[in-house]
Write a protein that binds this DNA or RNA. Structure first.
Length: 708
DNA sequence: AGAAGATAGCTTTTT
DNA sequence: GCTATCTTCT
């Protein structure tokens, strides 16, 4: 280990004797290097045992990365360090002590889809209206309470009484199906610790130092957990940058980092302010932007690197034109021998990515998209996984409902109802109910055959005898799932089959490499995130700004830089939210090393129809002398300065006084055209004419609706 | 029971 | 423009 490779502040952070310590690490300030050096130093120079160090990262990928670096320094000892996300850390301990909190060690994890289904079934069971209680919003209320550590009965005082019933049933059902949602993983660990002081003390004694990376993105619950572990010894080192706090919506509490000194009175603060990533101009632009945020730790990020080029700002007329410009620029870069893996396209929401994807595909440039339709979110993958989960845990009702009639086994609504009633009567799970009903032949003939087939498929897979690979291949074949897909030949179905075989080979690899039991595979799979799947192969990376946190690229295109996109239209009502959007923008800009392009489009497809946007207000926060501005004149577009974020008019009924988006119209002067947007209050209508481009007209001079 | 057709709601971000 | 869910028809 060579401490000379570090700058003075970094060295200070490595050598600091004892926590609590807050390392404020600006973007690109060598945070990971500092952290890994500190850990290596603790082990090699100060004689800490590797397994007495707990390092918590934001993603599994970051943990892997850090472990890789530490292996170079410490060899195999590096593997003994406790390193992972909050969730993987909590799971590791919970699996050891599951019985103490009324779970089996094989409990499963419900992701947000499962969670929503479960909430829905609770609402139904209570006989409440799903219109009054939309499962998605009830779900997010529940999550909110948990991550902010608000007691649900307290919170629900402001809501209907029914909410508390839903909540209680939800928790009861989670328990009885031996499963936890994401927040319960942490919550249950806290509970385990608080109810079993001996276990807590064991870990408090065990860990001589606890390091938390990306501290600005921890929530109240995680804060509490860390506090339990380190309060006594004060052996806490946290690393973060308040300017990069972008997960407020998920309950991340910026107070954790802003008030660190208040919570830990003896805390030291070390600031890493030298940036090793970006050129002077890029950094200056980002600094100027973020200086508009009121609530922040004082920091002066500076760099020794070159001046660099100005930030290019391209104001396109349409999203397609924007994509064309980006692809054209990428082509130029490639001819200058820039490698594809050094380029990233970043955007605020996934929906922006489509035009860019299309343009790249047309040009034959390799790309990878992170997130969006995730592999594990695809229907066929979820279905196969549901089979596997049901095999591991017969009590998993959500998975049961998902696959009992997939492929069709003549078990429809009525039969499901019978099974549900039976299970409620006998207080057993749905699968157990079905098993008994098959035994006693308590089903109509038609359903009975399918039901007994289903039971035997699940029963045939014994996790003690067969390994994960054996079971998944058995399920895929015997369930008739593949046969169902093959029966109807289509492109989608053949990609579905491909996806399933990808899953099977993934499991095969897992079986041969890490562990062989299906339980272990299922336990792992629900924690895999998208960022974990980024590979450094030769392709351009497309992703949301959120996924880009912690990454860097030589060339960055920040696209879709329009008002109501960034900042998002939903963040306009409060300055807290607006500041988070600005930080998001800051994160995006500081990913760039050599060159930063910011692009936007006046016209963009959204919700399946054209929308008009002004430039993002953030562009005016970057000093003009740092910008190289390219504006695409399209004379007609100039008129549309107004901010048009309006809902598409849905009704298709004919109404003389109303115009609808996509409606075909005729104007005696401009000819045939299509309605692009319509303002009810101002009676302004925007039409794209076949001849003569886009025009904005008042309803008084409006064209005639063409009957179709 | 299941397929085909109709409709609502979505698009902020994810461990 | 897409998909998950609801409705209607066979």
């Amino acid at each position: 280990m060579n401490l000379q490779l570090l700058n003075e502040r970094q060295r200070e952070a490595v050598l600091a004797e004892k926590g609590p310590l807050l390392i404020l690490a600006g973007a690109g300030s060598g945070k990971t290097k500092t952290l890994t050096t500190r850990i290596a130093y603790l082990v090699e120079e100060r004689g800490f045992l590797p397994d007495s160090i707990l390092a918590i990262t934001f993603t599994n990928k970051a943990a892997k990365e850090m472990k890789k670096r530490l292996r170079l320094e410490l060899g195999l000892d590096a593997n003994k360090i406790w390193m992972g996300t909050f969730h993987s850390f909590a799971l590791r301990i919970l699996r050891l002590h599951a019985e103490k909190i009324g779970y089996t060690p094989n409990f499963i994890i419900y992701d947000s889809y499962d969670q929503k289904q479960l909430v829905k079934s609770c609402i139904e069971e209570l006989g409440l209206s799903s219109d009054y209680y939309p499962s998605a919003s009830v779900k997010s209320i529940i999550n909110n309470c948990k991550s902010k550590m608000i007691r649900f009965d307290e919170y629900s005082k402001y809501l209907d009484k029914d909410y508390i019933d839903i909540y209680e049933l939800y928790e009861k059902k989670l328990r009885s199906s031996d499963s936890m949602d994401f927040d319960n993983i942490i919550l249950n660990l806290v509970k385990l610790f608080e109810d079993n002081k001996d276990i807590l003390n064991y870990y408090v004694d065990k860990f001589s130092e606890v390091l938390v990376d990306e501290y600005q993105d921890t929530n109240r619950l995680q804060y509490h957990l860390v506090n339990l572990l380190t309060k006594k010894k004060g052996n806490l080192v946290v690393v973060g940058d308040d300017n990069q706090s972008i997960y407020g919506w998920r309950g991340a509490d910026i107070r954790n980092i802003m008030e660190f000194k208040k919570d830990y009175k003896k805390a030291n603060i070390i600031k890493l302010e030298q940036n090793y990533r970006s050129t002077k101009r890029i950094l200056a632009a980002a600094n100027e932007l973020i200086s508009n945020n009121k609530n922040q730790h004082k920091k002066e990020l500076w760099t020794d690197l070159d001046e660099g080029d100005k930030v290019v700002y391209y104001d396109a007329s349409s999203d397609r034109e924007e994509a064309r410009y980006v692809v054209k620029t990428i082509r130029k870069e490639i001819s200058k021998r820039t490698r594809l893996e050094d380029i990233a396209i970043l955007y605020r929401t996934h929906s922006i990515s489509r035009v860019f994807e299309e343009a790249l595909r047309k040009e034959g440039i390799d790309y990878q998209i992170i997130g969006g339709q995730k592999f594990y979110d695809r229907k066929e993958i979820k279905d196969i996984l549901a089979y596997l989960r049901l095999i591991v845990n017969n009590k998993d009702d959500i998975s049961f409902l998902r696959v009992v009639n997939e492929p069709k086994r003549a078990i429809g609504k009525t039969t499901i109802e019978k099974i549900t009633n039976y299970s409620l009567e006998h207080d057993i799970s749905l699968f157990e109910a079905l098993e008994l009903m098959v035994e006693n032949a308590e089903l109509p003939k038609k359903s009975l055959a399918g039901a007994s087939e289903f039971v035997s498929i699940i029963k045939a897979c014994d996790t003690d005898e067969l390994d994960a690979y054996d079971i998944v291949s058995r399920v895929v074949n015997s369930s008739g799932y593949i046969a169902m897909l093959e029966a109807k030949k289509s492109i989608e179905n053949s990609t579905r089959i491909d996806n399933i075989s990808e899953l099977v080979s993934d499991i095969k690899l897992f079986t041969s490499e890490e562990s062989s039991t299906l339980e272990d595979y299922i336990a792992n799979v629900s924690l895999i995130s998208d960022v974990d799947t980024i590979d450094e192969s030769k392709a351009i990376t497309l992703m949301t700004i959120h996924s880009a946190k912690g990454l860097e690229y030589k060339i960055v295109f920040l696209v879709g830089f329009d008002d109501n996109i960034i900042p998002s239209y939903q963040s306009k009502d409060s300055s807290t939210k607006l500041e988070e959007e600005r930080r998001l923008c800051y994160v995006a800009m500081t990913r760039a090393m050599k060159k930063l392009y910011i692009t936007r489009a006046k016209r963009r497809m959204k919700f399946g129809s054209l929308m008009y946007h002004s430039p993002s207000e953030f562009i005016s926060e970057i000093p003009v002398d740092l910008l190289d501005e390219i504006n695409v004149p399209e004379s007609l577009d100039r008129e549309f300065g107004f901010n048009s974020y309006q809902k598409q008019l849905q009704s298709k009924e004919k109404n003389e006084n109303k115009y609808y988006v996509s409606q075909t119209v005729r104007h005696d002067k401009f000819g045939l055209g299509k309605v692009v947007s319509y303002h009810d209050e101002t009676k302004i209508i925007v039409i794209a004419f076949e001849e003569g481009g886009v025009k904005k007209l008042h309803v008084d001079f409006a064209p005639i609706i063409v009957e179709d």
